[in-house]
Write a protein that binds this DNA or RNA. Structure first.
Lengths: 130, 130
DNA sequence: GACGTTTTGACAACCATTTTCGTTTTCGGC
DNA sequence: GCCGAAAACGAAAATGGTTGTCAAAACGTC
């Protein structure tokens, strides 16, 4: 495991939310690192392939990454303001998705489930801005 | 409603699956239309804003669109080979997502749920290629 | 038919991501 | 410690989907 990749992994784990490659690059550079953007992308790709980080796409198509605590299958509750994310599980949803697939004759059924909302602190600060 | 937008809507409704803007543009051009790519994007944007088509992002960030039969909230079971999609509902999932959000103090809770699989006909043709 | 408005499409601009390629670093063996 | 191969790096260029710009064309109205 290279040093650079470790740096990316750590930068990612310092956040509880989803971060984009560009974000992480900016963070690392501002800390004084001489890392290149290419390397950030490569590291994220590798971490993603290894299943060590979760990836999802924002509504404008940008890829965002998160270092999750568990390596078992799970989903996220994501704050649409600050990006903060909570890992959630839903055994019932897993079974439902599987059975829906089977009902329609689909095989190798997988699914993506993400829940979005405004977290308590973002809701509070939005309130105070009025 | 302009003629061009109508053409895009129709091209989209001729497919049961999700199509990208580039796909639709190619379809229309091959039918002899002189439509421009810009206009296809504008039409899709407008249809999407109006809630007349559903949008989602492929894993590589491309936006894909589908003309759905119902205008009520629903999800999709999508074939990862041919893109064919079936509209599905899951009241239990809706409630689950809402309650998960509330449990963690999130407000304005929404969610995205997509189920992927290989449809029967794609599975069959994959089989015959062996 | 003239005129203001809306729609259109060619083209350029954007921007996240990937590729290229020459350089640097790492590492096992000596 | 020294060498050479292999892996990692980073700057710059390329890619590709999507959006912005702007002048021309289509439309409706009087």
């Amino acid at each position: 495991m290279s040093t650079r990749r470790e740096a990316v992994r750590q930068a990612l784990s310092e956040s509880t939310g989803f971060r984009s490659a560009q974000d992480l690059y900016a963070d690392l550079r501002s800390e004084g690192s001489k890392i290149g953007l290419t390397t950030v992308y490569r590291a994220l790709q590798a971490l993603s392939d290894a299943g060590e980080v979760d990836v999802l796409r924002t509504s404008d198509g940008e890829a965002v990454y998160r270092a999750c605590l568990t390596d078992t299958h799970h989903h996220h509750l994501v704050c649409r303001e600050c990006g903060k994310a909570v890992e959630i599980e839903g055994p019932a949803v897993e079974k439902w998705a599987e059975s829906i697939g089977v009902q329609h004759g689909f095989s190798d059924v997988t699914h993506t489930v993400e829940v979005f909302g405004t977290c308590a602190s973002c809701a509070a600060s939005a309130q105070s801005e009025r």
